[in-house]
């Protein structure tokens, strides 16, 4: 499903050049649950962003479903992303001006799905994540755990094959964190591929495989 060859990312400012990723070879097969670990600034999030087609590598190749997308422009990446990849962030990234329902509905709007159809899909997903009773609330009226469930609902609503999670439990207490991890495992068991960046050893235990990143290089892989 995912294959990278010599994937490199360099950030340049006027004075410094930082190598975030250097020649990463990395592979994920469908149905896997992979955790990426490593200290701050080791390039975890950069790797996740490139895998998620939010950013382009500086050099190297990236095959997503056997298509080399490494040089895709923003608009083609968006097309590729749509409906195929769902994102979950540490800080939830919900839009404050939209209700829970509208936040979850967002990906469907951009997939041009009819309103009545959308309504059904959103209701079902909200029920499944046990936040149906909150559909008319705004993000700031929810607890962190609830917000993350809304974000997960948004990530899965379009039934993507791949979910990318960037420290999904980072802003949550352990109880809510556990809930989120159980949800992810459930999704994975239903066949969704999951790649997760985390600091948390316990969360990483949920994965089939743990990849350790250090200074932009893969240090070691461990099967869970």
């Amino acid at each position: 499903m995912i294959q990278t060859k010599k994937l490199t990312k360099v950030f340049r400012t006027d004075e410094v050049e930082t190598t975030a990723l250097s020649a990463i070879d990395f592979e994920v097969t469908p149905g896997e649950f992979v955790a990426i670990m490593g200290p701050s600034g080791c390039g975890k999030s950069t790797l996740l962003n490139i895998i998620g087609l939010l950013d382009n590598p500086t050099s190297g190749d990236y095959f997503f479903n056997e298509v080399n997308v490494a040089r895709f422009r923003e608009n083609r990446r968006t097309d590729m992303r749509k409906g195929n990849i769902g994102f979950i962030f540490q800080s939830f990234n919900l839009i404050d001006e939209l209700t829970v329902f509208e936040n979850v509905e967002l990906p469907l709007v951009y997939l041009n799905i009819r309103a009545s159809e959308r309504k059904k899909m959103v209701e079902a997903t909200l029920e499944r994540l046990k936040i149906g009773h909150r559909r008319k609330h705004y993000p700031q009226q929810l607890s962190g755990g609830q917000q993350q469930r809304v974000a997960i609902a948004r990530a899965v609503i379009a039934k993507p094959k791949l979910i990318l999670a960037d420290e999904p439990t980072g802003n949550l207490d352990s109880k809510h964190g556990l809930e989120v991890m159980n949800l992810l495992r459930e999704l994975n068991q239903e066949g969704t591929t999951i790649i997760m960046v985390t600091h948390n050893k316990r969360d990483a235990e949920f994965a089939h495989r743990i990849v350790n990143l250090f200074d932009g290089q893969i240090l070691m892989e461990k099967l869970g």
Partner: peptide, 15 residues
């Protein structure tokens, strides 16, 4: 931030 979120959710520049 909203622009970013919308784009991650599949919005194109023109949207």
């Amino acid at each position: 931030k909203e622009i970013g979120v919308r784009k991650v959710s599949g919005a194109k520049t023109k949207n």
